[in-house]
Design a protein around this nucleic acid. Structure first.
Length: 970
RNA sequence: GCGGGGGUGUCCGAGUCUGGUCAAAGGAGACAGGCUUAGGACCUGUUGCCGUAGGGCUGCGUGGGUUCAAAUCCCAUCCCCCGCACCA
C-alpha cells in the first residue's frame, strides 16, 4: 500500500512537470474535447462523485493513447443558493451540519468560523476538491480552470442570456412554487426536513352562497359537485369572514396567508370558531340546491380553504363523516338539529363505475371496515375510489351536459365551465402537506410574479433539439428514449432567483441567473479561459460583440477589437482555439442530470451555435452504492474522496468505481472491493518484477517457428483480448474492458503458465511471450490505473510515459486458429477425463486416449461444409462416408452422431475447422503428454483408434469422435 | 399516472442486441486439501439433483407461443428500482 502511494506521487509530479496533459491547438493532430459536469463546492467530493469524473478521465486517457490531442478541463460551479444556506446554518450553530463538517469532512475547527462567509466556504471546498482530483490522477489541463463567479464568466453568461432573449427564448410570467414564509424563499426538495419534494396541486374552489357571502369549498374533484349533500366545517377551527378580491368569503384563518401569497387581496373582517357556521344553509350556484353546513373533525383548516363540500356517494371521507354524525344524536341536538332531518341526507350517485355499486364510497368503506372519520385507512379508500372513477367512471344522467363523459374529461370541463361562469376559482396547495422547511416552518405555495423563464416549450426549438439528439451518440444507448421524452416534456424553466451567487440577469439586475441555467454552454468558455487571465484582459473588454466574434465569427475583427481596445492577435487566437476544440466531442455526467442539465445543454447549444458546433456525444453513468445503499450525505454513508485515496490508493479507487458496474447500473463500493483491487495490482506488479528477473542472454529476436502451439495460442488469445477491450472502450463499457484486460487475460495467462510449467528448456521463448502479454496488458490498463502502469512501464525498460504511448492494435497475423482449436481440444479432453474420474471415484494409474481415425475426420469435415451450405442429408452423408469408412453399421452410427453434434456448433467455429482442415489430435495430445500426466497423475497413452497393437480392453476406441477422443481409464 | 431501467444459481453479477460450444463466465460465501507455530494471505479442488465412463433430469420472475433448439425471439402478466424540475 505504501509503495502504491509513493508511485502515485512520483508520477503525478512527473506528469505535471512534463505538462503532458496541457492541450494546445495543434493542427497536425485530431482533437478530442471531453468535459464533465463541474463540481459544486459546498462539500468535499466523495467516492460516489469519483465515478463520473474517473470515467471522463479514463475516456480522456484512452483517446490520448489513440492518438488524439485530448482536452479535459475543469472548473467550479459557485452559482446558486446551497452554499449560502449552509453558511447561514453554520452561523446559526446548526449542530448536525457542524458535526458533518468536523467529523465527516474533516474541516479544521478554526476554519469553520470563517465559513459564515459563503465565499470562503466555497473557496475552501474548491481547493479541497481540486486537491482530490490531483491525487486521484486526473489528466486535467488546469490552466483553463475558472469559477462561475469570475467576472469574465459573468460576462460570458450575460452574452448567452442576451442571445437567448434576442432569439425569443426568454419569457416572463407568474409561477407557483413551494415557499417558506419565514425564510422568504422558494423551497425545493433539499430545503425541506426529510428531503420531501413539495408537490403543488391545483384545488378548485367551488363557490356556495349564503346571502352575499361566499363559501369557497376546496376540491380536486369538481365533477362531483352534482352530488353535494352538505358542506363540512371543522367546529373547533378558527374561521374568518374576509374580503377576498371583490367578494366576501368565509375561509379558515390559516388560508388567508396562503391566498395573500397567491396574489389575492385579503382583508379579514371577523374571526370566529367554525361552530358558529354549523346548521346554517348555503345555496349551490350550480343547481340552486339549499344544503346545510355540518360539523366534521376530519376537515383540516390548514388544507386549502378549510371548507369542504360533502359528496358522500363518491368520497369515503364524506361518507364516513355523514354516517358518524347520523349516530351522534347528542351532538346534533347541541347544534339544534333534528336527527330525522339529518337521517334524510342520502348519498347521491352520479358516476357509474363497473364493479361497484351506485355508491362506490360505501363499498370501499365497508370493504376496508372503516367506521371513524379520522381512520388513516380513509386515505387508501379515497385513493381507490379516486383511481377507479378516474379510469373507469362514466358520468350519469343527473350531471346534465356532462352525461356520458369519462370522469377524466368531465373533471376538466366542469372546472373550465365553473371558472368561466365565475362559480368557481382555483387555489394552489401542497398536495403532500405538511411539508416543513429546514427552519421548521410549514411550507405553503406562493405565486411568484414577473418570474423569468427560458421557454423550452417552444415547438421549433424542440424540433431542433430532436435533430441534434438524433445526430448525437448517447452512451449508454438505452437512455436515448429518455432524452427524447425529456425534450418533449420540458417547458418554461424558471431561470433566475433573487438570492444566491452567480450572474445577474443583464436586463433586470434584481435577478440572479440560477445554476442550471448558467451551466449549459460553458464548455465553450474553457477554450478561451486561459487567455483571458494570461493576457490580462479586463472583463469590460469582453463585450457581446467580442463574444459574437469569438464564438460565432460575427463582425469584423478589426472593428470589434478596436472598439474595446483589444489586441486583434489575442482575439483571433481565442477564435481559433475555440474553433479548434469545438464542437464538444463528449460530455460526461451522472444520469440524474438527463432530466435537466444534459438536455438544457442540447437546447442551449442549438439555440446559440451553428449546427456544425453542436455537441456530439453524451456519456452518463449511474451512482455508487455503499453496501447496497446509495452513497449520499443524507444516508451518512459517504467516504470522502481524499479519505478513500488515503486508505486505498488512487488506482484501486479508480478501478473499484469503474469495474463493478456498467454505465447504466449503480456501482458498488466497499472496502472489500477496494482491497481486492489493491491485491490485484500488487500481483500485477510482482508479475512484472518476475519477468524482468528472467534474464535473457541473447537478444530477443525470435523466429515464429520457435514458438510451440501453446505459445502461439497465448499470443492469439492476446490479440483477441485487444480486439474485445478496444471494442468495449469505444462504447465506454469500461467495466467490460477491465474484465477483459485484467481478468480474462489473466485466465488465459494462468492456463499458459500451467501448460508451460515443465518446459524449462524454452525459457527465453516463454519470457518473450509473457513480456508481450504484460506490455499489452499494462498499456490497456493505463487509462484506468495510470500510476502503477507508468511504474511498470519504467521497470520493464520502456521509454517515455505510458500515458501518451499508443494503444495496442491487434496483430491479425498472430491470430492462430489452429493453436486455439488445439488448446480447446486439450481443455475439453482434460475436463472429460476429470469428469470420468470423478464419477467413477477411481484413482487412475493409466489413461488411454483414442483419437478418431482419418475417415471420420473426412466425413466430419464434409458434414461441416454441408451444414454451412444449408442442410445436411443423412443419406448423402452416409453414402459419402461409406466410400471412406469400413463397416456400414459403424458408418451409419457415426454419421447420425455427427449430424446431432454439428447442429450445436456455432458457425464461426465451423468455418475455422473447415479452414484448418481439422487438427492433428494424436500429435497435440502426444505433445501435451507430460502436462496431462502432471494434471491427471497417471500415465498417458495415445492411440489412433485403428492403430495396430492397440490396447483397448473395453472396446472404447470405436467411440472416438473428431475433437472428442475416446477415453479409457484403469 | 407518465417515462426509463431491471428480475439469472446461497449471495453479488455476466450472458439477452447477433437463439445452439449454457448447469450458465467471474467474484463472494461455504466445504475439503496444501502451506503455516497459529491466524491472515496464498495455492488446489468441490459447491442444483441423480449417476462406478465423459450421461440424464430440473433450471434463468410467472403463464403462453415461435423453433429441430429459448436465459436469449414474440405475446400476456406480476414484482422491484429511479425520475417527474425551478433545485444542486
Amino acid at each position: 500500500m505504501e509503495f502504491l502511494k509513493k508511485i502515485e506521487e512520483k508520477w503525478q509530479k512527473r506528469w505535471e512537470e512534463a505538462k503532458i496533459f496541457e492541450a494546445d491547438p495543434n493542427p497536425e493532430k485530431p482533437k478530442y474535447f471531453i468535459t464533465v459536469a463541474y463540481p459544486y463546492p459546498n462539500s468535499p467530493q466523495h467516492i460516489g462523485h469519483a465515478r463520473t469524473y474517473t470515467l471522463a478521465d479514463v475516456h480522456a486517457r484512452y483517446m490520448r493513447m489513440r492518438g488524439y490531442n485530448v482536452l479535459l478541463p475543469m472548473a467550479f460551479h459557485y452559482t446558486g443558493t446551497p452554499v449560502l444556506a449552509m453558511s447561514k446554518r453554520l452561523a446559526e450553530n446548526d449542530e448536525e451540519l457542524i458535526n458533518d463538517f468536523v467529523n465527516v469532512y474533516k474541516v479544521p475547527k478554526e476554519k469553520l468560523k470563517e465559513f459564515t462567509d459563503p465565499l470562503i466556504m466555497a473557496r475552501y471546498f474548491h481547493e479541497e476538491i481540486k486537491e482530490g482530483m490531483r491525487k486521484i490522477g486526473y489528466s486535467i489541463d488546469w490552466r483553463r480552470e475558472f469559477t462561475t463567479i469570475d467576472s469574465y464568466y459573468n460576462r460570458f453568461i450575460e452574452w448567452q442570456f442576451n442571445k437567448l432573449r434576442q432569439k425569443g427564448y426568454i419569457t416572463c410570467g407568474s409561477h407557483p412554487v413551494g415557499w417558506c414564509l419565514k425564510d422568504g424563499n422558494p423551497v425545493g426538495q433539499h430545503d425541506t426536513i426529510g428531503d420531501v419534494e413539495p408537490e403543488i396541486g391545483e384545488f378548485i374552489l367551488i363557490k356556495f352562497k349564503q346571502g352575499k357571502t361566499i363559501f369557497p369549498t376546496a376540491t380536486l374533484r369538481p365533477e362531483t359537485v352534482f352530488g353535494v349533500t352538505n358542506l363540512w366545517v371543522n367546529p373547533q377551527a378558527r374561521y374568518v369572514k374576509a374580503k377576498v378580491d371583490n367578494e366576501e368569503w368565509i375561509i379558515s384563518q390559516e388560508s388567508t396567508e396562503k391566498l395573500l401569497n397567491q396574489n389575492r387581496k385579503v382583508q379579514v373582517l371577523e374571526t370566529f370558531l367554525g361552530k358558529r357556521l354549523i346548521g346554517t344553509f348555503v345555496e349551490s350556484l350550480v343547481n340552486q340546491a339549499k344544503i346545510v353546513i355540518l360539523p366534521a373533525d376530519f376537515v383540516d383548516p390548514k388544507n386549502a380553504t378549510g371548507i369542504v363540500m360533502s359528496v358522500p356517494g363518491h368520497a369515503p371521507y364524506d361518507y364516513v363523516a355523514l354516517e358518524n354524525i347520523k349516530k351522534e344524536h347528542e351532538k346534533l341536538k347541541e347544534y339544534g338539529f333534528k336527527p330525522e332531518k339529518i337521517e334524510q341526507i342520502k348519498p347521491i350517485s352520479l358516476i357509474a363505475v363497473p364493479g361497484y355499486s351506485d355508491i362506490p364510497a360505501a363499498d370501499v368503506v365497508k370493504k376496508m371496515k372503516i367506521t371513524e372519520q379520522l381512520d388513516p385507512k380513509l386515505e387508501d379508500a379515497t385513493k381507490e375510489v379516486y383511481r377507479q372513477e378516474f379510469h373507469n367512471g362514466k358520468m350519469k344522467t343527473n350531471t346534465g351536459k356532462y352525461y356520458g363523459m369519462s370522469v377524466a374529461q368531465a373533471r376538466e370541463e366542469v372546472k373550465q365551465d365553473l371558472v368561466a361562469e365565475g362559480k368557481a376559482t382555483t387555489m394552489y396547495e401542497l398536495v403532500n402537506r405538511p411539508v416543513k422547511c429546514r427552519c421548521g416552518e410549514e411550507c405553503i405555495v406562493k405565486i411568484l410574479q414577473d418570474q423569468w423563464f427560458i421557454d423550452y416549450g417552444k415547438p421549433e426549438w424542440k424540433t431542433l433539439a430532436h435533430k441534434c439528439l438524433n445526430k448525437m451518440e448517447i452512451l449508454p444507448e438505452e437512455l436515448r428514449t429518455e432524452f427524447e421524452y425529456v425534450i418533449d416534456w420540458l417547458h418554461e424553466k424558471a431561470c433566475a432567483r433573487k438570492s444566491g451567487m452567480g450572474t445577474k440577469l443583464p436586463w433586470d439586475k434584481e435577478w440572479i441567473i440560477e445554476s442550471l441555467s448558467d451551466s449549459t454552454i460553458y464548455m465553450a468558455y474553457y477554450t478561451i479561459a486561459r487567455h483571458l487571465k494570461k493576457c490580462q484582459i479586463r472583463p469590460e473588454q469582453m463585450t457581446d460583440e467580442v463574444f459574437d466574434y469569438i464564438f460565432l465569427g460575427e463582425g469584423n475583427i478589426y472593428k470589434v477589437a478596436e472598439k474595446v481596445d483589444l489586441n486583434t492577435e489575442i482575439l483571433e487566437r481565442m477564435r481559433q482555439e475555440f474553433l479548434y476544440f469545438y464542437p464538444l466531442d463528449s460530455r460526461h455526467s451522472g444520469r440524474d442530470l438527463i432530466h435537466n442539465h444534459l438536455t438544457f445543454m442540447i437546447f442551449n447549444h442549438i439555440a446559440i451555435f451553428p449546427e456544425k458546433l453542436w455537441p456530439r456525444q453524451i456519456v452518463t453513468n449511474g451512482s455508487v452504492m455503499m453496501e447496497g445503499v446509495k452513497m449520499s450525505k443524507s444516508f451518512g454513508n459517504i467516504i470522502p474522496l481524499q479519505e478513500g485515496l488515503e486508505k486505498f490508493g488512487a488506482d484501486p479507487v479508480r478501478l473499484s468505481v469503474l469495474s463493478t458496474a456498467e454505465l447504466l447500473q449503480d456501482a458498488e463500493f466497499n472496502p472489500h472491493i477496494a482491497k481486492s483491487m489493491i491485491d490485484k495490482l500488487e500481483k500485477l506488479y510482482r508479475f512484472a518484477i518476475q519477468i524482468t528477473k528472467i534474464r535473457n542472454k541473447e537478444n530477443e529476436k525470435r523466429q515464429v517457428e520457435a514458438f510451440d502451439l501453446v505459445d502461439k495460442w497465448m499470443l492469439s488469445r492476446l490479440q483477441r483480448r485487444i480486439t474485445d477491450a478496444t471494442e468495449a472502450m469505444e462504447k465506454m463499457s469500461v467495466r467490460k474492458a477491465i474484465h477483459c484486460i485484467l481478468y480474462e487475460l489473466d485466465q488465459d495467462l494462468r492456463w499458459y503458465q500451467k501448460r508451460t510449467a515443465r518446459k524449462h528448456k524454452k525459457d527465453s521463448v516463454k519470457k518473450d511471450v509473457l513480456r508481450q502479454v504484460l506490455e499489452t496488458q499494462i498499456l490497456m490498463l493505463a487509462p484506468v490505473a495510470p500510476h502503477i502502469c507508468e511504474e511498470i512501464w519504467e521497470i520493464i525498460g520502456k521509454k517515455g510515459f505510458i500515458s501518451i504511448s499508443p494503444w495496442p492494435k491487434p496483430n491479425l497475423e498472430k491470430i492462430d486458429i489452429k493453436a486455439e482449436e488445439s488448446e480447446e481440444l486439450l481443455i475439453n479432453l482434460l475436463e472429460d477425463t476429470e469428469n470420468i474420474i470423478k464419477v467413477t471415484k477411481t484413482k487412475p494409474r493409466k489413461i488411454f486416449f483414442y483419437v478418431a481415425s482419418a475417415w471420420k475426420w473426412k466425413v466430419y469435415l464434409k458434414a461441416l461444409e454441408k451444414s454451412m451450405q444449408g442442410k445436411i442429408e443423412l443419406k448423402e452423408l452416409i453414402q459419402n462416408a461409406l466410400k471412406v469408412g469400413r463397416k456400414p453399421k459403424e458408418v451409419v452410427k457415426f454419421a447420425k452422431k455427427v449430424i446431432e453434434q454439428i447442429k450445436t456448433i456455432p458457425e464461426k467455429k465451423k468455418r475455422n475447422l473447415i479452414k484448418i482442415r481439422g487438427v492433428d489430435e494424436r500429435k497435440i495430445i502426444g505433445d501435451a503428454k507430460e502436462f496431462l500426466r502432471g494434471r491427471l497423475q497417471a500415465d498417458i497413452t495415445v492411440y489412433v483408434e485403428r492403430d495396430r497393437g492397440i490396447y483397448d480392453p473395453k472396446r472404447k476406441a470405436a467411440m472416438a469422435m473428431p475433437l472428442r477422443p475416446a477415453i479409457y481409464i484403469e
